[in-house]
Amino acid sequence: MENNVIVSLKDIVVDFDGARILDGLSLDIHDKEFVTFLGPSGCGKTTTLRVIAGFIEPKSGNIFFDGKDIAGLPPYKRQVNTVFQKYALFPHLNVFENVAFGLRLKKLPENEIRSKVLEMLEVVGLKGYERRNIATMSGGQQQRVAIARGLVNQPKILLLDEPLGALDLKLRKEMQLELKRLQREMNITFVYVTHDQEEALTMSDTVVVMNEGNIQQIGSPEDIYNEPKNAFVADFIGASNILDGIMIRDFLVEFAGKEFSCVDKGFKPNTPVQVVVRPEDVKVVPMVQGQIAGLVKEVIFKGVHFEMRVDVEGREWLIHSTQASQPGELIGMCIGPDEIHIMERQEG
């Protein structure tokens, strides 16, 4: 799905109070994609969103929208709409007027405004709520109003700044699917900011993992999850075992004191690398059958699986298994070649 680039950021630098928030960030966003900026708080993901919306003027760098440089263009002239973290609805207007706000500014005829607003309220599941006062609505309903208020203007891009952060878990899951559906139905670009890796993996076509004002990795959810580029991504995307190892030759890597066959190649012989093994990819077997052995230290029941902390030659591994072992038990562990992910070792 290689669509046209709709937004292109080039070497964006943003400073705030003497601190560098974005450090030469470059990024292309393709049309009609669901793109997610994922990272810990303070990584610059919201700042990037605000640069696209026009609320922050970068210190240097260029931003192109449909190929045109839009630096200095105020927010109200940009063809993007934002869904804010805390909804930011207009408390003095009812649901209908909140959604109609942008259309009224465009001075559309009254009957057109009416039909567009009612249609959009139906799309977000708020039919019949037109006259409701904003203050009487639940968080989930308010968020739907905020989404409708943005989408009704038919923006080229809808920017969403952690829109589900204030909702409870069940509602959040529902809204994730709903947002994904909306994005497909409206057929526009969504740029979504979150610190929740699961949310990012569930909804996105493309995930942009960020840290300290830089992009760590861009890729599909599968790529990011299965082939993390560095330890930060591997760690942030999901609890992982990240181990130092040596790539002995193509398809053979050594870590935890053993040699394992793997599917990676192209490293120089004996290159120091980092190895990522996901907790759920470690197979627990009787000790004699295992490639490596470990001592179970802790077992926690997590519902679908047991989470175990296992000591392997002085290093703690995290293992998810559907079968419980007992603390103090010695177990064997197997890791298939496909489950071993090799990354270049980063100093520091």
Partner: peptide
């Protein structure tokens, strides 16, 4: 954020003043 929302939805400074 409410003021930003107004600008985001197309309100100039004058529009933000009078409508929000």
């Amino acid at each position: 954020s409410v003021i930003e929302a107004a600008q985001d939805l197309g309100a100039s400074s004058w529009g933000t003043l009078t409508k929000v």
